[in-house]
């Protein structure tokens, strides 16, 4: 009679069976078979469009200073790689420096704002003003004031990039489960402990969502600022190459630079998505693969 309650708690089969069973799917080149159509379809569309473009240019005899064909663009990219890669590096350096600064300032400000409602109330409107003012319109001022061209470009790109990280991280820090906050109170957790063990992890998916947006925005900010600086004759990033090619009617080179900007944007998007996936794959709905 006493045994059932005094022995240690047994396993219940009904619960244990609820564990997900991973089904083995057939893999082709390391990717699950079901994901291939999603890769093949856009690639086919791309090939068709590029072929049509090349054929149109050749059949109609469109001069290359109006519209170069894709083959000529790739050739130009190859031939001018020395100049273009240098510009690419400059643009990417500014983009990533701006993104890192955006993360540092955005996250720090978000943490400070959630610790003090008054600070948030007094400073947040200015963050909004900074965000809604078009960077093109303040870039000339920044370039004049700062003097150093790289630093001004960095500041411009940072202004564009930091807001999504700030607002998303604030949202995330404030969205920790209310009962969990109570639990932390119950165990007399310090502010720092609540931040470290509860608010920051809870904010991570939101922060990463902001990072995905900011990655693209940092590139846009860097390019826009380069345009402004480029019209003044300084700077040497990809945007400057586009301007320069425009003046000289080197349209294939313009397209090649454009192609590099697009590829950089895509690469940044995949990089941030990959980081988000790595960080969230164990627990967050957005990154978890479901069987049903």
């Amino acid at each position: 009679m006493t045994s059932s309650a005094t022995t240690s708690v047994p396993h219940d089969g009904t619960d244990a069976e609820a564990r997900p069973v991973s089904a083995e799917e057939r893999r082709i080149l390391g990717l699950p078979a079901s994901s291939w159509p999603g890769i093949i379809a856009p690639v086919v569309i791309g090939i068709i469009a590029l072929t049509a473009w090349e054929l149109t240019v050749r059949i109609k005899g469109i001069p290359h200073y109006i519209l170069p064909g894709p083959i000529l663009i790739v050739q130009t990219l190859w031939n001018d790689w020395a100049t273009l890669s240098e510009s690419l590096l400059i643009t990417l350096r500014i983009t990533f420096a701006a993104l890192i600064a955006a993360i540092a300032v955005g996250v720090s400000l978000a943490i400070i704002f959630t610790q003090s409602k008054w600070l948030e109330k007094s400073l947040f409107p200015y963050a909004v003003i900074l965000q809604v003012t078009p960077v093109v319109s303040i870039a000339p001022l920044i370039i004049i004031w700062v003097g150093d061209i790289n630093l001004s470009l960095l500041i411009c790109a940072w202004i564009v990039a930091f807001f999504p990280i700030l607002s998303n991280t604030i949202l995330g820090l404030n969205s920790a489960d209310h009962n969990l906050i109570n639990l932390f109170q119950l165990y007399r957790a310090s502010r720092w402990q609540t931040l470290r063990y509860l608010r920051l992890p809870a904010a991570l998916p939101y922060f990463l969502g902001g990072l995905k947006i900011s990655g693209g925005l940092a590139l846009i900010g860097a390019v826009v600022a380069e345009f402004v600086a480029g019209t003044g004759g300084s700077a040497s990033g990809l945007a400057y190459r586009i301007l320069e090619s425009g003046y000289r009617l080197q349209i294939p080179r313009m397209f090649a630079a454009l192609l590099l900007i697009s590829l950089s944007g895509i690469a940044i998007f995949f990089l941030t998505s990959w980081i988000a996936h790595l960080a969230l794959r164990h627990w967050h709905e957005s990154a978890v693969r479901r069987e049903n």
């Binding site: 063990y197 992890p201 627990w283």
Partner: peptide
């Protein structure tokens, strides 16, 4: 004291062991 809520109220980013450790960590 220990408190059990109506919902399990676990930290989704932490495994069962880390969740159980929480009061000790704090």
């Amino acid at each position: 004291l220990g408190f059990v809520f109506q919902d399990p109220t676990l930290m989704p980013w932490a495994n069962a062991l880390k969740n159980t450790m929480l009061p000790l960590t704090l």
